[in-house]
């Protein structure tokens, strides 16, 4: 009787659905592919491991520029995941939230920025730092659009 497996219920968020086509689309001319729509997929479910435990935060500053995380980007932060070596995490130091890479070297743990202009911070006492969540995705706008516009209106 111990073999029953509970299947997690899918997230009830309003899904953002994109059609997935099962035929290849020849370049040059649009194919009347609308008859071939196979399924709709939800970007949230495709990308996020735990949609209900994921929070979006906005990046300020360029301390993580080396990891392709820039000012104004959105980060998906998973609170359910256990943070580990080499994860990029949101950590709380002195009551402030910061995004850094969690790094273990010779038994010592560090919060490392990815920008030579910033200094790494060694975790001496586990009580000094609190891991708020693990960053799973970066949302970076390559073509100026709504995200950037939203940011500009705030400044």
């Amino acid at each position: 009787m111990q073999t029953v497996e509970l299947i997690p219920v899918p997230d009830s968020d309003i899904p953002f659905l994109l059609p997935l086509f099962s035929c290849s689309v020849p370049a040059g001319f649009p194919s009347p592919a609308s008859d071939e729509i196979e399924e709709m997929f939800d970007l949230n479910r495709l990308l996020l491991r735990h949609p209900d435990a994921t929070y979006l935060v906005r990046v300020m500053g360029e301390s993580m520029a080396g990891a392709e995380i820039h000012e104004g980007d959105l980060l998906a932060v998973d609170k359910q995941m256990e943070a580990d070596h080499n994860h990029i995490v949101v950590a709380v130091i002195d009551g402030e939230c910061t995004v850094k890479r969690l790094w273990c070297e010779d038994g010592a743990w560090w919060l490392k920025p990815e920008n030579p202009a910033f200094k790494p911070w060694q975790i001496h006492d586990a009580g000094d730092v609190q891991i708020w969540g693990v960053v799973t995705h970066v949302l970076h706008e390559l073509i100026p659009g709504k995200m950037g516009a939203l940011l500009r209106t705030r400044d």
Partner: peptide, 13 residues
């Protein structure tokens, strides 16, 4: 409104 408004998201440095 940290979780429901894009303009209100938590900011991290």
């Amino acid at each position: 409104a940290y979780t429901t408004q894009l303009s209100d998201l938590l900011q991290v440095r």
